[in-house]
Design a protein around this nucleic acid. Structure first.
Length: 439
DNA sequence: TCTGGGGTCCTAGGACCC
DNA sequence: TCTGGGGTCCTAGGACCC
């Protein structure tokens, strides 16, 4: 949404709960909206500063992420797909060539996707992340910052709070702060790598320490790995007291969970199910229960796993409690082929696998939940998450795709210096102008 | 009134073996 | 009174990441 570049925005967590991404826009000082602030606590600030608030649209983010990564694939061979919005690339070339290439990457992604990206260049992954934060914070770098010399490294680390280093979380930060270690450079000056390992409980901290010294300890991880556990959980849109509705909600998470299992060709040997009340309502009686079930035979069928998940709910549910959240984790995953059979097993597993395959095919072709088990309920359900300010699925849903209405020959459009078509976007009442100029 | 949803790795310690 | 030396496997819990 390039037209919002100067508008402060908040993107909410699932269920429209907390701020998970505040973009200041025109605001140049800290107004106190932190990661994780519940949005109802920020009502006054939202009004005062004209902050636009959005529900999160993960399919949109995931799609943009794929596009960025496919462009990066044109420039780099050795790539680690680290997270939805971060990538590590390895390159062996003189610094000026690398810098030129990075600027070109940034230009191409800016032009093609309208996304501003930041690039950090350094000799270790941890230092590259430090460099990236400088590239992002200081406009002078124009999005690309390198830490190359020892002097640059020390200056950068002296300006970086120890807690902002990748691998130093809030516990380590507290511990180090108590020893008067405030910046990353303090850490290097006041400890050795051996004492870092000793006082911070292991080899992980020691690796981070060495990486900051410029000694690479974290290799580029280019393999696409299967997940070792997969979890699906959601808070409910409202408090739920009916066990059948809880079972419905959990069944729908099971459908998502088993689809993820089948996608990476895994089966679960065990499941973990939990059920919680709203821990913020201190006036309510609380519950936070969990059950682990070892499955008789590893499975990725929503029929079978759904059955055991509902058993777990039945066992945990207590009359009169106001439940807020449930979820399921698939554990002890194994490959689809290496199956340990069960002597007493009566299930027709081949048939069930074929059913799941057919269902996956239909849903892939015609959209998620074209066919689904009746156990997840039909139509609007009270446990559905709230998403009241959802931006359109511009790039992943056919009805939301922007329509080109006009292509002016002598446009003065200024987005990355290119001629840009006028596009009608599906308007969200009160937020978007009818005609927008966009990339 | 309203408070997110995923993951990984490492270590210590228990329980067992010879 | 004195009580060895070498392993493995598993799990809970801690710490970290996005």
């Amino acid at each position: 949404m390039p037209w919002l570049s100067l508008t402060p925005t908040i993107t909410l967590s699932n269920n429209d709960g907390c701020n998970i991404c505040f973009k200041p826009g025109y605001i140049t000082y800290d107004i106190g909206i932190k990661m994780g602030t519940p949005i109802f606590q920020a009502d006054a600030l939202v009004k005062r500063y004209g902050i636009e608030v959005f529900s999160c649209n993960f399919p949109l983010i995931a799609d943009m992420s794929l596009r960025v990564k496919s462009i990066l694939g044109r420039f780099f061979i050795n790539i680690e797909d680290y997270s939805i919005d971060e990538i590590f690339c390895e390159i062996d070339a003189p610094l000026d060539q690398v810098m030129e290439m990075c600027r070109e990457v940034r230009r191409v992604i800016g032009k093609g996707l309208g996304l501003p990206i930041s690039i950090g260049v350094a000799h270790t992954k941890t230092l590259a992340k430090v460099a990236t934060s400088f590239a992002k914070k200081h406009p002078g770098y124009e999005g690309v910052c390198a830490i190359n010399t020892d002097e640059q490294r020390k200056i950068a680390l002296s300006l970086t709070s120890i807690g902002d280093i990748w691998g130093i979380g809030k516990e380590h930060k507290k511990k180090l702060n108590r020893r008067k270690i405030i910046t990353a450079l303090d850490w290097l000056n006041k400890m050795t790598s051996a004492t870092a390992r000793k006082t911070m409980g292991g080899v992980v901290a020691q690796r981070t320490y060495c990486e900051l010294e410029g000694l690479s300890c974290l290799e580029l991880d280019m393999l696409l790995k299967k997940k070792k556990s997969i979890m699906v959980s959601r808070s409910f849109g409202e408090n739920i007291t009916d066990p059948n509705l809880i079972a419905e909600a959990l069944s729908s998470y099971v459908v998502m969970l088993t689809a993820k299992l089948r996608k990476q060709k895994s089966k679960a040997q065990a499941i973990y199910v939990f059920l919680e009340t709203n821990r913020f309502r201190e006036q309510d009686e609380q519950a936070d229960d969990e059950i682990v079930i070892k499955l008789p035979v590893a499975s990725s069928s929503d029929i079978e796993i759904g059955y055991y998940a509902r058993l777990a709910i039945k066992a945990m549910f207590r009359e009169g409690l106001r439940y807020k959240k449930t979820g399921i984790r698939a554990m002890r995953l194994c490959g689809e082929e290496a199956l340990q059979a069960h002597l007493m097993d009566k299930r027709d597993r081949k048939k069930e696998d074929r059913l799941m395959q057919a269902k996956d095919k239909i849903n892939e072709r015609w959209g998620a939940n074209t066919v689904y088990p009746a156990a997840i309920g039909m139509g609007k359900r009270p446990w559905h998450i709230r998403q009241e300010k959802l931006p359109p699925y511009w790039s992943t849903r056919i009805t939301d795709i922007p329509v080109v209405k006009d292509w002016p020959q002598n446009s003065t459009a200024d987005v990355i210096g290119e001629i840009v078509p006028f596009i009608y976007m599906k308007p969200l009442p009160g937020i978007y102008p009818t005609v927008l100029r966009a990339v």
